[in-house]
Design a protein around this nucleic acid. Structure first.
Lengths: 142, 142
DNA sequence: ATAATTAAAGACAAATTAATCCGAAATTAA
DNA sequence: TTAATTTCGGATTAATTTGTCTTTAATTAT
């Protein structure tokens, strides 16, 4: 469904949201520990999230990453930032041109599924997901 | 959403279903012409569909491929045969263990989307899709 | 039988994605 | 100031997917 980088981006953002102490910088080491992902690859994903402005970073001792605690962040924003909008727009059959006016044979059938997917991603914030995690109902690693 | 091979498999199956003359063998050349896909790669996808029993093949002059005209074929069968069941079962966040009893933070949110996707694929047959194509409402290539 | 045609099969090449490595830059603390 | 720490950035490697090529086997028609 999502790329490996996209999966890890979601886990990173959710984990950063669980941190209680506002303003604390969370290091790469701690992050990969808590989401159980390859360190070097995760560092690259963190870099991309930082460049996209979804998180902030600070170098040096006691540096790390944190959420710029402003408005709510949706899963949709994260996926768009890392995987692009292809999953929502690219033709399911791979046709270069596929639209309402020139639809592929399964265009209409899949429109509903994609709208559903987009709806879930847009309506779900990491803050909301965090709650379930803190309640112990869900897990970020095995 | 699907792999390139999966996309091409769907197009192949839909095209084969549009053929009116029952029993006719349709060659690779004609298929790639009609679905606008790379010839050698499409040949490989045809091979896999044949091995999986979703289509039949015949070598030699006037050979080619055809649907074994038996029961209806669903899009679900085709995707399972080529891409496997990963899209329906693998954790959205990539967790090795993720289930009802040990769910990732977005497990429940995405269950509905996946059930929706599976429902569409299971309930849609290539025969049904073919109808819309023959009516000229849809297109298999640009 | 022979030649032509077509799919089968496996080896190979290219492109993309996943993942690692390492030196440089920034920051902190001694 | 110096040393330690941590992210940044680019280069590199590995794995997977996509796509091609070439030979063989089956089938048909001459």
């Amino acid at each position: 469904m999502f790329s490996r980088a996209g999966e890890i981006a979601l886990k990173i953002m959710i984990y950063l949201a669980t941190d209680q102490q506002k303003g604390r910088w969370i290091g790469l080491r701690e992050i990969v520990q808590e989401i159980d992902s390859p360190e070097a690859f995760t560092a690259k994903v963190l870099q991309r999230l930082t460049r996209q402005g979804l998180i902030r970073s600070l170098r040096g001792p006691s540096g790390g990453f944190q959420l710029p605690n402003r408005r709510a962040v949706t899963l949709h924003e994260i996926i768009i930032a890392i995987d692009g909008e292809g999953i929502f727009t690219k033709c399911v059959l791979g046709l270069a041109e596929c639209s309402e006016s020139c639809p592929c044979p399964v265009h209409d059938k899949f429109k509903a599924v994609r709208d559903h997917l987009a709806g879930v991603l847009i309506s779900t914030t990491i803050e909301e997901v965090k709650e379930g995690l803190l309640l112990g109902h869900y897990y970020l690693k095995v």
